[in-house]
Design a protein around this nucleic acid. Sequence first.
RNA 1: GCCGCGGUAGCUCAGUGGUAGAGCACUGGUCUGAAAAACCAGGUGUCGUUGGUUCGAUCCCAACCCGCGGCA
Length: 320
Amino acid sequence: MEPEKIKPITLMGANASGKTEIALELARKLGGEILSADSKQTYKYLEAGTAKPAGVWADTAAGRAYLVENVPYHLVDNLDPRSTYDAGTFVKEAKKVMAEIEGRGNAAIMAGGTGMYIQAFWNGMDDLPPANPEIRQELAALAEVGGKEALHAQLAAMDPAAAVKIPPGNIQRVMRAIEITRLAGRPVSQIWSGRFYNALPAHEGKFVFLKWQRDLLAERVKRRTVTRFEEWAAETRNLLAKGYPEDCPGLKTLGYPQMLDYLAGRLSKPEAIHAITGASMAYAKRQNTWFGRYRNALLITLEKYEDYDPAAIAAKIINA
RNA sequence: GCCGCGGUAGCUCAGUGGUAGAGCACUGGUCUGAAAAACCAGGUGUCGUUGGUUCGAUCCCAACCCGCGGCA
């Protein structure tokens, strides 16, 4: 008799909400492997700054893997900080890893805070042309001269419907809309299916949203920032010494700009900690807004510290 | 004790004789290959306290309280 196949579990939540610990607990209980949905932990050398779980690369029966407490932890620690990464690439790699995990008969546990990656993986993306560096460079140069308004005006000329949906200040999305329209040869607003943001496919797996009471999360974020600050500073200093530019993709991420300010003497240590904590909380708010849209996810609210019991939460998820 | 400066949003502060504003914080939201990104919306208030002048005081006057600096 074949054992019942365990459907993938997807664990979502803001940074510092304890996803990793619960994912490890689930992996131990189910004999599972973890698949990280985190846009920054994919980078090598970014450890303290991304709260990447400590692990080691080792040869296993299934090939080389990053092991955290002996649990395979996929899609982390494998990209140079100078490289870019994106949702499309993530989906492609994650599908492959997911298939391999299932092929081994193991439970897959996706854990992460990058809502867009989770969204793209489970709900898919419309068939849009991938990023084009030449066009982006050209558009960035145009924005340099004419400002964000000039770019938005260009979008309005080629696709009024898209221009209405995207505010001029949001230069990244304006550029992307122009890019798609040019590459596809027709207005992006006609290509968008408009059905991208809905619920998650609950029949394909379990979806869990860990939501902390704000002040408690702020306390956790602050404590984590203070605790790892020196290690983070050393790691960042080391990267600069190796020749990584301050504006490389890996370093253009939450907290690193403030850390670079600190290393350059533009911020004192308390100021840097305050700025990093503030940025992390602003990010947590966005994450909670994103995940809150999934009404069919299992919502686990944490209102007091005692509510955070990884083993109990893991059991609750398994029994849900 | 005296002199000076200050007391306005959670914080730092601007401002006006017609009940007030910015930045940050906070709250809600957007999101289709940069997403730890890039944005949109919302002002949340006993203007230190009590009196006085005035049609009207957060603003002018007095006293008091508190903080900072100086002189004793």
